[in-house]
Amino acid sequence: MFEARLSSTLTLKKIVDALRDILNQSTLDCSDTGIQLQAMDNSHVSLVCLCLRSDYFEKYKCSRNVSLGLDLKSLTKVLKCANGDDAVTIKAADKADKIELSFESAGKERTADYELRLLNLDQEHLAIPETEYSCVIHMPASEFARICRDLAVFSESVVIACSKNCIKFSANGEMGSANIKLSQTSKAEVTLQVDEPVTLSFAGRYLNTFTRATPLSEKVKIGMAADVPLLVEYPIEDYGYIRYYLAPKVDD
């Protein structure tokens, strides 16, 4: 039996919004420690990992590990039926073929129950090694979203170059070029920890998709090292995170 309650449906909506442009369907792995999701996009260019610890939830019960295969479009449709400030309870029986979502209004005068059919999805798990990133950048999530959006106008590829003094985002296309540099700020809105300078090239379309997680977090962490995927991490308060990994582009 699995049961998890959140006091606000809005956070669940934000989490699903951060996933649904990259994944159509995915499996939530629920255990007594919390909820995890790991999946590659259809093109196998990026990987997304969601981790929510059990103490993120107002109530959390998971007597046996369950895997819930979900169609994220359908889940979005159900979440649209709820107000952001409704409390939401997700329930699934052992070996269930559906989950139940119950929404309760803030004043408790309205409850609405929905059932969503589960999918049997082939699951492929990848082991993600602990990586020592040569460059770790923290910046406001809204700033990162703005940069990704602005650069997408110029080129499919975005070059990220991180050095001791600054991080530079560049795009170069037929229309022209764009270069955006950020230095570490005294207010620590932007911080750079650089052991070795790194320059890598990435598909801007994916970076833009990752920024769908912006409403979840004030800050974003970016990790870069030579010849490894880019890490873009959005913390979910102190209880978990969404991490996106993006394979670099290499010279042909």
Binding site: H44, S46, L47, E124, D252
Partner: peptide, 14 residues
């Protein structure tokens, strides 16, 4: 010209 690599090539299957 740059070529997109696959994320699966960086991580091992479990």
């Amino acid at each position: 010209q740059s070529k997109q690599t696959s994320i699966a090539s960086f991580f091992t299957k479990v």
